[in-house]
Design a protein around this nucleic acid. Structure first.
Length: 494
RNA sequence: GUCUCCUUCGUCUAGUGGUUAGGACAGCGGGUUUUCAUCCCGCUAACAGGGGUUCGACUCCCCUAGGAGAUGCCA
């Protein structure tokens, strides 16, 4: 039998970086070994269930280009792939465990469990269920049935011995049975299974061969082994992946910045960058290669290059990858990526897209080296579409110059404006150089007031290209406006 | 508290007994340049600590410390 792996998210929130990393590694592992990648929805927590989470999952997979071999939408011979549609299977197997003496009904109320926990915390005892119902008498059970307490089914963890399993990455892992979570719930009082039960049953019946999941599952793995043994099933191969951390060294969380894939998409991160960056947390290829496409990873990924230690998600490095992949795009591709942002910021109306195609082409080539994320387009190009709110004289006037000199620069530019718009860019640059020389200022000091005038900022795309794109009328109007401001300045100083 | 896992530059990592401990991001400096970027060049920076084993330890073993995760009728 070939390799079969699965990604089994719980639809309770947005897909985040950690989850996607797990999905990707499973996917790459399957692809590289000619195996099957299965998607299974673990929606057994009915309280936290969210329809939204499901669409977000689909969006994320579509965006990343992950295609599943079997799953809820795709189908497959091991379905259904949604746990809430498999509840009868779990109930039957839970009952079977009770019959075989590996599990038992527990009638303890939530209140009792809470008090128990409280007491354990106060008295600094070990945490966990006290196994009160493990040896419950028949008459006591009958009594509970009469008062219609909804029982749960708990697994009997052996009281002695130890459980050993093998992890591909971590090697042999031993745990004394008394240290395993004492008798975890398998079937909840709403008769839905817990993760532990459903996960083990599904992995078995879906013929999953390898389990690649985050290391946060490591502590409950012995429990799963006990379950496999109780059923008499062969356990799959385990490989617990190092976790993805935030900059504080703890589990990546919202306070670290964006964590949901959707947020990264909105900010204008490319899937190439996300895939590349995420793949290099906990995995490497060799001592120097750093760029990998999804297709390459589908061939190159191997378990033996995994790292044991958790890795911090570095936002700066993601930015760098993103800039790299933006620059990798053709102008045409980048234009398509940028258009939604131009529309979103109200710069371009959707119906004018074809009319403005040439204009947008220019914007793309003016900004492509300056974009870290696609949404940077807003700060970089707003002045083409909106008026400059206000000018601060201290922004306009270069440090070494005064208002009068600055005004002179703008007036001289104004005079030559027709040339600026009729000549090619190189000629305009020559023109500016000679004009700067003729009035005795450096080219930089000559251009900066013009830049602020035209773009409203002292940081902008190249000024000559920007000027030409803006158009002579708007350019002239902005120059006039600033000359007026400078007139006042000169007046004040006299 | 208890259990389990982890530990190379600030960060991601290469390294499997003998290396000037390599690369990348970030940072810093320089070059190109009309600003900012891009691009190019350079610099700073690490084997957590202590014991062993060995002719020789980043590499193997033990201890300590630190970190993380788990300890739910959440996954």
């Amino acid at each position: 039998m070939g390799i079969r792996v699965r990604y089994a998210p719980s639809p309770t929130g947005l897909q985040h970086i950690g989850g996607v990393r797990t999905a990707l590694f499973n996917y790459f592992f399957a692809k590289s070994r000619g195996g099957e990648f299965i998607l299974r929805i673990e929606d057994t927590d009915r309280e936290r269930y969210s329809e939204n989470a499901l669409t977000d999952l689909n969006n994320t997979f579509n965006w990343l280009g992950i295609e599943v071999d079997e799953g809820p939408d795709k189908g497959g011979e091991y379905g259904p792939y949604v746990q809430s549609e498999r509840t009868e299977l779990y109930r039957e197997h839970a009952r079977r465990l009770v019959e075989s003496g590996n599990a038992y009904y527990c009638y303890c109320s939530q209140e009792r469990l809470e008090k128990l926990r409280e007491k354990q915390a106060n008295e600094k005892q070990d945490f966990g269920y006290d196994r009160k119902c493990r040896e419950i008498s028949v008459s006591e059970a009958d009594e509970h049935k009469r008062d219609s307490t909804k029982p749960v089914i708990r697994l009997k963890i052996p009281l002695e011995g130890e459980t050993v399993f093998h992890d591909y990455l971590l090697g042999e892992i031993k745990k004394k049975n008394i240290d395993i979570n004492p008798d975890p719930v398998l079937l909840k009082s709403d008769s839905y299974p817990t993760y532990h039960l459903a996960n083990v049953i599904d992995d078995h019946f879906m013929n999953i061969t390898h389990i690649l999941r985050a290391q946060e599952w490591l502590p409950s793995c012995p429990l799963h082994i006990v379950l496999y043994n109780a059923f008499g099933w062969k356990q799959p191969q385990y490989c617990h992946l190092p976790m993805v951390m935030g900059s504080n060294g703890q589990k990546l969380s919202k306070r670290d910045g964006a964590t949901a894939v959707r947020e990264f998409v909105e900010k204008g991160y490319l899937k190439e960058a996300i895939i590349n960056h995420v793949s290099l947390i906990g995995w490497s290829y060799d001592d120097s290669r750093e760029f990998f496409t999804k297709e390459e990873l589908e061939k190159l990924f191997t378990l033996d290059k995994l790292n044991k230690a958790p890795g911090v998600f570095d936002y700066k490095k993601l930015d760098w990858f993103n800039g790299h992949y933006i620059r990798q795009k053709s102008n045409e591709e980048l234009k398509e990526l940028l258009i939604p942002y131009l529309v979103k910021y109200g710069f371009v109306e959707p119906e004018k897209l074809t009319e403005m195609a040439g204009f947008i082409d220019e914007i793309v080539s003016l900004t492509r080296d300056r974009l870290k994320v696609l949404s940077d387009i807003k700060e970089l190009t707003w002045f083409f579409f909106k008026e400059v709110d206000s000018y601060a004289p201290e922004e306009i006037i270069p440090k070494k110059l005064d208002a009068a000199k600055t005004r002179e620069i703008l007036e001289v530019v104004k005079k030559h404006l027709p040339d600026v718009f009729s000549k090619p860019e190189e000629k305009v640059e020559e023109l500016f150089k000679s004009l700067a020389e003729s009035i005795g200022v450096k080219l930089g000091d000559f251009i900066m007031p013009l830049r602020v005038t035209v773009t409203g900022s002292n940081v902008s795309p190249p000024i000559i290209g920007s000027l030409k794109l803006l158009g002579i009328e708007k350019a002239a109007a902005r120059i006039d406006r600033v000359i007026n401001i400078l007139n006042d300045e000169v007046g004040n100083n006299e």
